[in-house]
Write a protein that binds this DNA or RNA. Sequence first.
DNA 1: CATCCACCGGAAGTGAAGGGAT
DNA 2: ATCCCTTCACTTCCGGTGGATG
Length: 335
Amino acid sequence: MIVDDRVLHEDFVPSEVVHRHEEVNHLSETLEPLLSDARPETAFLFGPTGVGKTCIARYTVDQLCEQLPSVRTVYVNCWQEYTRFRVLYSVLEAIDRAFDIHRSTPKDELFRRLSDADDQPIVAILDEVDQLEETEVLYDLHRLPHVSLVLIANREEELFASFDDRVRSRLRAGTRVQFDRYGTDELVAILEERAVQGLEPGAIDERHLRTVADAAAGDARVGIGILRSAVRRADRRGLESVTDDVLAESIPDARTAIRRKTVEQLIEHQRVLYDLIAEAGEIEPGELYAAYEAAVDDPKTNRTLRNYLTKMVHYDLIEAVGERRGRTYRLVDDE
DNA sequence: CATCCACCGGAAGTGAAGGGAT
DNA sequence: ATCCCTTCACTTCCGGTGGATG
């Protein structure tokens, strides 16, 4: 049933964009000055998850590369690379200037090397930039005339709130591209395109795609996840095409899969906290700390737990209700 | 109303790990 | 082999805040 597995992967970049022409144009206009050797403004892509921000950024930058092969491009996911060092390192790595750089290399050396590498323009896509812990690195990159930035985040206000003053004032100018939730029809078209490219003809019909799109509620990532899960399930059962039954089983499956993936990224002690909160439903900090200390062999300090908890709130896994005294923690409910 | 005090989170310090220089 | 330097996860210390308590 599956012809090309990659197409059903969420970070696949299609060769043709189904919707979002307007957004693509807006972004490519912003980057256009590069063609005449000028420096583009910083571009911001805002919108909820699964609306194609990452995909459109990569697609547009790829297109630019075809017109202008000399431009170097970097994609950095700030969820993983959240320190100044790691971001700078990722950029250097992408332009092949990362040789003999290691932990003991001072950060300023990384920056110096990057500013020396000004023979070719660099376009850096920083995804999930609101996860960045050392936002000064944006100031660093912005200072370099040969580096252009494409910054991706969920909400503008929250992103700017996390910046320090210097970064905020430098980046206030810049182009904003807003992405809205897909409608069902748009999502069906996107899924159809993937099905055409990745599946055997007739593997899934339009009616089922519509069901998938409805269940995904405007989130293409969830939609593609459901599609992938349904097709695999049907394949395992030796079916020729996706049926109602298979689809019904795949929907809840794919919905929790994304969260599960995030939970898996947590380190052991964070997961203990997560499980304790899940078990209690809702729990006060004092009680949570006590339960944690009882649950593990070598407990971390209270302060470290608070760091873990704020991180997990950031990841949208748990939610803190109330302020200071009287606060409780609970899991984020799945609408 | 005054005073606790549970909790939050910033700042600075510690020590392990990794690697260069000598 | 030794010393020195870095980053990074964690700890120690502490000031601020506002609901709880009498």
